[in-house]
């Protein structure tokens, strides 16, 4: 096992996950004005090989690729933001990297409040809606009791 993450690393992992799973348009709508920054790696479209495990828990195997766009940039104030987001939307990747960088600044709590929390809530609402529809299709078995068995 790898060593446990520091609180900063854990926060960054959570944040990058929220940004990657967010809908690109929802993130774009929440973006604050972009601060001055320089691209370290302009948004680049590529693929990641998704792996599964034989029998769900056995040896890893290659399932197939997914499209991913990544971006790295540095704010004028020095913070470096990274993003790896599903799909081929370069604006999504750039916005995610900007938020990753901004969240490291003193105003990080504000970024959390105006961008990350609404995205996390939207994601939770989507998951809840599917879970509710799934719950409605859950089978409630009941057994008929026949007279002669009593």
């Amino acid at each position: 096992m790898t060593e446990p993450l520091s609180p900063d690393q854990a926060a960054r992992r959570d944040r990058m996950g929220i940004l990657a799973r967010a809908e690109a348009a929802a993130l774009a709508a929440l973006m604050p004005p972009a601060p001055a920054h320089r691209m370290l790696r302009a948004p680049e479209v590529g693929a990641v090989m998704v792996r599964g495990r034989a029998g769900a828990t056995g040896a890893p195997f290659n399932l197939g690729e997914m499209s991913v766009t990544r971006c790295s940039l540095r704010l004028e104030t020095g913070e470096v933001g990274h993003s790896y987001v599903q799909g081929r939307d370069k604006d999504h990747a750039r916005n995610a990297a900007l938020i990753d960088a901004l969240a490291q600044r003193p105003e990080g709590a504000e970024i959390e409040r105006i961008v990350l929390r609404p995205l996390a809530e939207a994601e939770a609402a989507r998951a809840q809606a599917r879970a509710e529809k799934a719950a409605a299709t859950r089978v409630e078995f009941f057994t008929l009791v026949r007279g002669e068995d009593q």
């Binding site: 590529g46 693929a47 990641v48 998704v50 792996r51 769900a56 990544r70 799934a134």
Partner: peptide, 18 residues
């Protein structure tokens, strides 16, 4: 497409199933 890497094996046990 350039290959950025390989994922961790997905955990299907943690799936919220439809």
């Amino acid at each position: 497409l350039p290959r950025f890497g390989g994922s961790e094996p997905v955990d299907t046990g943690a799936m919220l199933p439809d």
